[in-house]
Design a protein around this nucleic acid. Structure first.
Lengths: 216, 216
DNA sequence: TAGTTATCTGACTTGCAGTCAGTTATACGT
DNA sequence: ACGTATAACTGACTGCAAGTCAGATAACTA
């Protein structure tokens, strides 16, 4: 509960934002604790100390809740990349930062097939706008840092996005409990972590347009 | 029903395979008709003209059913790529064939986050083996066709897999009904089809290791 | 203080995945 | 041909989680 001590209802906009924030925090805690599939809306409501009905006043669906978490994580990722990337460190930073921001990779993995598929139009469009703006910032950054021409940088940026999506998928498989996996299948799971597979692919993609100093 | 006219039960292995095939076909028809989210196990049972209980004798979960459909589609894709790819056509073929095999792209998009997450260990391992074998075949093909050294070809093959995963995700977004999407967001959906985004990225990845003739 | 508004509540509805005790087609032995 | 054993088959049922809504009440307003 983030409302002032003897306040039971959020009337002002800022109070509502605080409550929504509390709900997102509760969800983050539960995901941490039980994984995505262990999270139920009843549990989120309980953890946030509100009723289920109230929860649904703040998000339309469970997936809208996850989408909000993703966009917040993506904002962190983009800001940190902008802050840390130079022509020397671009690939290293792009490989490392996404994996360091909590929930970014697992939410990205579920973004299209699970999350966006079940968010009503208006909230989806609003979040898409935020995401698109951030995408453009990354493309600009790549162009600036590598000195590649605009259109090539845009292609590379798109390809990076695809690859990041894919790497996020493989990351799920990599985090599976390996006891019980037969030896001959280990390689299909092991070493598929995002921070391992993505930089490798990013290097292949960026090496075509970046000064050689940034590739190593 | 694929069983001989006056046969009501599948006793022999071949009859069981026939019945399983009939179930997969029924599922394919329903996915075609209602999309993934419209498919229920009750509907699959009805379409296959068996009871729900029987359906569950042939697959452990709904996702195991989808996984089986995916592996069959992937087999088609790999066979066709092997048959059609030459050093000149590699990129073109790899960009086109996956999009041409029905269900391959949408199932790939859901493979990790949705499907593999809900298949019991033993059937999952069995299908993984088949997938892994096919992956190795593709890596070998790339090495042969481009003349790239083994390890580089393996990296490129991995990167291609990541990218294909990502492109499949974007394809879902691209197939959304666009009426109702505000004009400023159109670019976020349009032109993201698999057959458009994947070849572009594949070219970037393969251009580093392929003779120039194959890049154009 | 009474009246009004809109937040909040939680029992309820809905819908689907997956189960299991009972039924019966088929194979096999006599 | 007939009885018995086996295992394929059935569909009503259970469990569970998402999402709803009519009523309760905190907080603002005159």
């Amino acid at each position: 509960m983030v409302l002032p001590a003897n306040r039971k209802r959020a009337r002002s906009d800022s109070e509502k934002e605080a409550r929504r924030g509390a709900i997102l925090d509760a969800a983050r805690r539960l995901i941490d604790q039980d994984g995505f599939d262990g999270v139920t809306m009843s549990a989120v409501a309980k953890e946030a100390a509100v009723s289920k009905g109230t929860l649904y006043l703040y998000v339309h669906t469970k997936e809208e809740l996850f989408l909000a978490l993703f966009v917040e994580a993506m904002e962190q990722v983009v800001c940190r990349i902008e802050a840390e990337a130079t022509s020397v460190t671009l690939i290293e930073v792009m490989g490392r930062v996404p994996a360091e921001v909590p929930l970014f990779v697992p939410l990205l993995a579920r973004l299209v097939a699970v999350i966006e598929a079940n968010v009503p139009d208006e909230p989806l469009f609003a979040e898409k706008r935020r995401m698109h703006t951030m995408g453009a910032r990354v493309a600009r950054l790549i162009s600036n840092v590598t000195g590649a021409p605009e259109d090539l940088a845009r292609d590379a940026s798109k390809a990076l996005m695809l690859t990041m999506q894919g790497a996020a998928q493989f990351d799920i498989a990599a985090r599976r409990d390996l006891s019980g996996v037969p030896d001959d299948l280990r390689p299909a799971f092991e070493g598929q972590e995002f921070s391992c597979s993505f930089p490798l692919a990013a290097r292949l993609i960026l090496s075509g347009l970046t000064p050689s100093s940034a590739v190593n």
